[in-house]
Amino acid sequence: MFSSRRRIGGQGPDNSWPGFVDALSTLLLVIIFLLSMFVLAQFFLGQALSGREQALTELRGQVAQLGNLLRLEQQASASLRTSMAELSSSLTSANADRDNLSAQLDTAQQSLAQTRSSLAEITAARDALAMRAGELEQQYNLSSSELDEERLLSARAREQVNVLEQNVTALREQLSRLESALQSSEERDRRSQAVIVDMGRRLNRALASKVEELAGYRSEFFGRLKEVLSTRPEIRIEGDRFVFASELLFASGQAELGPEGRAEMRKFAETLIAISQEIPSDLPWILRVDGHTDRRPIATAAYASNWELSSARAISVVRFLVSAGVAPERLAAAGFGEFQPLDPAENVFAYSRNRRIEMRLTQR
């Protein structure tokens, strides 16, 4: 580093400080710093070495103490071995004594068990004797009370025998009077029986004539309805009943008659009213409306099962016929659910056949 100083205001002598002097001073400061660090390092190293020597001295003292303790432990171990040998011999003799005592204890326990068994048998025998004595005492008391009751009953029986003898005498007199009355009653019964037999024959003939008459009106009823409803393939005649397909009358899962079903039921009602006017009023006929469903289960808010749905459909048809002018006392509704199928198969055609309304003219 170079520095120069000049006088202000003119030329003068050159007073510049040589640059090597600054370099030497810097080098001297570095050397002094290094010497200081070396001295400090020597000082701390000496301190560390002196601490290690002190620790080594302490360790040597501890090793000496441990050696002393080891010698003491060896001496104690030798004495313990001696004590163990003595205890082992004592234990051997104690085990022999214990075995002897165990054998004696087993013998005593067997004797005690036998004694307890004998005592239990004696106690059971005593309890049985006490129970038997109690039963004998109860039987004696019961026999005594029964004997007293028998004596009392015997006295009452004697009194009742006397009363019964008197009653028997009176009954014999009444029996003789009843026999004579019975003979006269039997004669009257024979005459009445002949009258009843004759009335039964007349009644059977009258019922047969009524049945034949109803059968004739049923034939006429089926003949007229067949003419009226023959154009619809959904309406079938099976045996003595008309079968209406549910699809013709109701929507799926419903029990209200649709427009097409009302039209068919109106035709049916007109024919039924016309025929009922020709049937004598004393003939006990009714039109039974049966509702049937297929076997698939139903569970809705309105109908919990097929029973309710089939019954509701039959009732709906009956109500419509009543509104169309059919006498309600000539109508009956029944619901059979899925339990009387026409076709037991499991397909859509069988389901369609089984969903139906059947109408049958019958007697009450």
Rank of each mutant, 00 (worst) to 15 (best):
163 V>C: 00
307 W>L: 08
129 L>C: 00
121 E>P: 00
309 L>K: 02
60 R>P: 03
111 S>I: 05
322 V>D: 02
294 D>G: 11
134 G>K: 12
294 D>V: 05
11 Q>N: 07
30 V>T: 07
255 A>R: 03
166 Q>I: 10
186 E>C: 02
136 L>H: 05
239 G>S: 09
246 S>V: 03
1 M>Y: 08
16 S>R: 15
158 R>N: 07
53 E>I: 13
33 F>E: 09
191 R>L: 10
311 S>R: 14
223 G>A: 12
333 A>D: 15
51 G>F: 04
43 F>W: 07
4 S>C: 08
206 A>T: 12
97 D>A: 13
214 L>S: 07
244 F>R: 04
208 A>N: 10
259 P>H: 06
329 E>V: 05
259 P>D: 13
109 Q>M: 14
224 R>C: 02
274 A>F: 10
64 A>P: 01
10 G>F: 08
61 G>C: 03
63 V>K: 10
320 F>Y: 14
345 A>S: 11
25 S>I: 08
184 S>K: 03
304 A>K: 07
225 L>P: 06
237 I>R: 10
189 D>G: 05
46 G>K: 09
195 V>W: 02
153 L>S: 14
299 A>T: 04
37 M>A: 11
258 G>R: 05
29 L>Y: 02
4 S>Q: 14
253 G>Q: 14
116 R>Y: 13
211 V>L: 06
354 N>F: 06
82 T>Y: 01
146 E>S: 09
213 E>C: 09
72 L>W: 00
29 L>W: 03
45 L>M: 07
340 Q>E: 15
153 L>P: 02
332 A>H: 08
321 L>P: 01
222 F>D: 07
151 R>W: 06
112 L>Y: 03
214 L>K: 09
159 E>R: 13
64 A>Y: 06
125 A>N: 15
237 I>V: 15
117 S>R: 13
210 K>D: 12
306 N>W: 01
79 S>N: 09
128 A>K: 15
163 V>A: 15
345 A>C: 04
204 N>P: 00
309 L>F: 03
355 R>F: 00
65 Q>D: 10
